[in-house]
Design a protein around this nucleic acid. Structure first.
Length: 378
RNA sequence: GCUGGAGUCGUCUAGUGGCAAUGACAAGAGACUGUAAAUCUCUCGCGCUUCGCGCUUCGUUGGUUCGAGUCCAACCUCCAGCA
């Protein structure tokens, strides 16, 4: 069982440490989105230096390229991409369900590769196998995303997610035992790999409650909370779910963290880890976090602005370069623009979650939340 | 000086009788939440009461025509070749 120690609690919020085979994650923590085994525009060295504790790669993308067997051959995800620290994989469910013309059956999902159009199928079993081949420390169960927000669709998706969870758990156990039996082969990734069940139910809190109870009953190593897209209604939903989920296991809020408020609400209501493509995607598109909200560095008003992006930011960008310089790099479309912006945005979000953690330890969370959010969303 | 070619939005460009006029770039702004995202969307002659209306435009000046960026003439400028 995945080790998770809780150091301090405040209502649903908690400060803890997840102990993975590749090291500890001090929670709450923001996990870097490394979809294709890299955080776009950043090196792993840069990720370490900006304080990232863990990354999350995507099984769907890795199946297509380079193939999960190749990652196994490399010695697992951490070895392959030189991230010698904790790793997560998403099941691939979210991506596949967002593709056009997917065919969903009880067995799994048929879809077309966006790379070469090949007809492929993913099942709970094949997702587990792929994730074991990739060898991340923490895996996500293969879940079903509803095709609409309607209650009928949500309910159907949730029930299928539950049935698939049974199969994910069974396959995960089978793979764990199979790997243990050939553990003498040292080239294999660590046999310790852990499975999170994924809670669904959309915006219907009774469904969320049912899903949380079901997921908890399967006794997984932790939980993902999926199908969340905006902060609207998230607080009540998280209160419902996290009041039901067992306290002693970590909870990951899937895909949320572009907006600082998501992180505050998430932590306050019992989530331990987050991942989101937002910070780095925003960065590549010139949208930069500051304490006063996001700015678009490409705007003409920054052309002659020779001040740092943020006065009190410790990132490489803010410590060494001006807004005018970053503006210039974006206007001429230099690669460095995306690199520096990504360093800053990723650092900003990682640091914000770290500060939330510290405020919980210091028992100043409420004040920190109020002062941060009132300034950011002024 | 002669011969040929060319002059259209900041730039390059489409256009051969019904066009405020094509596309690209540049410029201005917006979006982005388990990344099909180094992406996408909008604006881009001027002015308004802006799902429309008015005005002024395609080197210049005239002309032909119901109608001209498109045809004709002259002129100006540029390019190439010849002197």
């Amino acid at each position: 069982m995945l080790k998770f120690d809780i150091e301090k609690k405040n209502g649903l919020a908690r400060v803890g440490v997840i102990h993975t085979p590749h090291g500890d994650i001090k929670t709450p923590a923001f996990v870097g989105a490394a979809t294709r085994a890299t955080v776009k525009a950043l090196t792993m060295k840069e990720m370490r230096e900006l304080g990232s504790q863990a990354i999350l790669a995507n099984t769907y993308h890795l199946i297509l390229r380079p193939g999960t067997d190749l990652i196994r051959e490399a010695g697992g995800l951490a070895e392959f991409c030189s991230w010698h620290a904790p790793t997560f994989t998403d099941s691939g469910g979210f991506q596949i369900f967002s593709l056009p013309n997917v065919k969903i059956t009880e067995k799994g999902v048929k879809f077309k590769s966006h790379v070469d159009g090949a007809q492929l199928e993913m099942t709970p079993e094949s997702s587990m196998q792929a994730q074991w081949a990739v060898g991340a420390d923490i895996h996500m169960a293969f879940d079903h995303l509803a095709k609409s927000e309607s209650r009928d669709d949500m309910e159907e998706a949730m029930h299928r997610t539950h049935r698939w969870l049974d199969r994910c758990v069974a396959e995960h156990e089978r793979l764990k035992n199979a790997t243990k039996n050939i553990e003498k082969n040292v080239s294999l990734p660590p046999a310790e790999q852990y499975l999170y069940a994924v809670v669904q139910g959309g915006t219907f809190n009774d469904l969320r409650a049912e899903s949380a109870r079901y997921c908890a009953s399967k006794n997984p190593d932790g939980f993902g909370i999926g199908g969340v897209f905006t902060a609207d209604g998230m607080e009540e939903m998280l209160k419902t779910v996290n009041s039901i989920l067992p306290e002693d296991k970590p909870r990951h809020l899937l895909g949320m963290g572009q907006e600082p408020i998501d992180l505050f609400i998430g932590v306050e209501n019992g989530c331990d880890t987050f991942d989101c493509v937002g910070p780095t995607r925003m960065a590549r598109n010139g949208s930069l976090y500051t304490n006063d909200g996001r700015i678009n560095i490409k705007n003409a008003k920054f052309k002659h602005d020779f001040t740092p992006l943020m006065e009190d930011c410790d990132c490489e960008l803010c410590q060494n370069y001006t807004r005018a310089y970053l503006h210039h790099l974006f206007k001429v479309d230099e690669i460095t623009a995306k690199v520096l912006a990504s360093i800053h945005n990723e650092r900003f979000i990682v640091r914000t979650v770290d500060q939330i953690r510290q405020s919980l330890l210091d028992e100043t969370f409420a004040e920190f939340k109020e002062s941060f959010l009132s300034k950011y969303y002024h």
